[in-house]
Every structure is written in C-alpha cells, then in structure tokens.
C-alpha cells in the first residue's frame, strides 16, 4: 500500500477515488512509540511497575526461603507445605496488584485511545502499543523484583548465621526461580493488560472520548 504522497495538495483526493484500507504500522514504529510512551510518563510507568516489582519480590522471597535445605522430619515437611501456600498467596496478591495497576493505567488513557482512533489508529495498533508496554514493564519489573526479594532473603539468612548451605546447587536453583518469576510476572501482566486494552481499542471512538478520568 502506497504512502498517500499523491493526495498532498488536493484535499481528500485519495478518498475520492474510493476508500482504501488503512496501513498497518510496522513493528519498529509501534515499538518506538511504546518506548517513548513509557519514558514520557516515567512516574506513571514506575508506579505501575512498582506493583509488579513488589508482588514478584514477595513471591521471590517466599520461594527463596524454600530453597534453603531443611531436615526431613515431620516439622520440616509441614514447613515446606506452608511455604507452598505462601508462594501461592504471594502470587495471588501479586496478580491482584498487577491487574489493578494495568487497569488503572489503561483506563486513564481511554480518551487518548479515542483521540488516536480519530486520527487513524487501528485497533490493532492500540492493542500492540499496550502489549509492548506491558511486556517491557512485566519483564523488567519482575526481574528487578526477583533480585530484590532474593537479596533481602539471602541477606537475612546470612545475617542470622546461615550461609554454609548456600552451595552451587542453590545458585542454579535460584536462577531457575528467576526465570520462573519473570515468566509468571510477565504472564500475569499481559493477562491483565491485553483484555482491557482490547476492549478499549474496540470501543466506538465516541465512547472512548466521552470518558472523563
């Protein structure tokens, strides 16, 4: 599809010849707009990201405690079970926090979405924009959150006299936990963001414009 250079000086010449289809922007253009969008609203992005960060830090901390070797007596097994529940709870809290943060950050941009649709944005562009923003924030905040949770937990463990049990095996398993945290954190972020972004993009432009937030 050609870039409408020909319609430059003749008002509406392109459309008069019959309506063409709007072009889909190449990925790198959408990527550039997303990066800019995150950077420009840095404070807002940080607040959204901190929800992800804290949730995953909590999850990471619980999981890291679970990596410390314990005995095999009944009490230790019970403790390990409690750890599992705690990890699940951590993940739930994390999911609620992230969902809330993503909902807020998309809802407050309804008007912007409506405006962009009036300027010729395709629904797909809007979903892609939020997909990239959410993925980036999910990956970075989860990774940092995992590191923070791990450092705090291992630090506390060392402080309270542990440390001989921090073997190479512990290191490898920690890396595995990191991958798990980043995947889960990013997945939760996307699961929260994509349906909201899709609904926002599908709205009639007038509905999106009417919302005053």
């Amino acid at each position: 599809m050609s870039v409408e250079a020909s319609s430059k000086r003749d008002p509406g010449a392109g459309a008069r010849a019959g309506v063409q289809k709007q072009i889909q922007l190449p990925f790198r253009v959408v990527w550039a707009i997303s990066i800019k969008s995150i950077r420009i609203r840095l404070m807002r992005s940080l607040i959204t990201a901190s929800g992800i960060f804290l949730g995953i830090a909590f999850f990471s901390s619980v999981r890291t405690v679970g990596l410390f070797p314990v005995g095999l007596d009944a009490e230790a097994i019970a403790a390990a079970n409690r750890q599992k529940w705690l990890a699940i709870m951590a993940l739930l809290v994390c999911a609620v926090g992230i969902t809330n943060a993503m909902l807020m950050s998309i809802t407050e941009r309804f008007k912007e979405i409506g405006t962009m649709k009036c300027l010729g944005a395709l629904d797909k562009f809007i979903v892609m924009l939020f997909f990239i923003e959410a993925s980036l924030m999910g990956v970075i905040a989860s990774a940092l959150g995992w590191v923070a949770g791990w450092l705090v937990t291992v630090g506390a463990h060392l402080f309270s006299g542990g440390g001989k049990d921090l073997t190479l095996n512990f290191g490898f398993r920690s890396l595995g936990e990191m991958v798990l945290s980043v995947v889960l954190g990013t997945a939760i972020t996307l699961i929260a963001a994509i349906p909201t972004a899709r609904n926002a993009a599908k709205m009639q432009a007038v509905v999106a414009l009417r919302s005053e937030i």
Binding site: E4, V19, Q20, K21, Q22, C118, L119, G120, L122, A205
Partner: peptide, 13 residues
C-alpha cells in the same frame, strides 16, 4: 466500511 477503511477515512479524509 470495514474497520481499516474507516481508519483510513479518519486519517486521510
């Protein structure tokens, strides 16, 4: 008009 044609119209016309 389908969605992409409508977007074209909003963008160009």
């Amino acid at each position: 008009l389908d969605a992409r044609e409508l977007a074209y119209l909003r963008c160009h016309t």
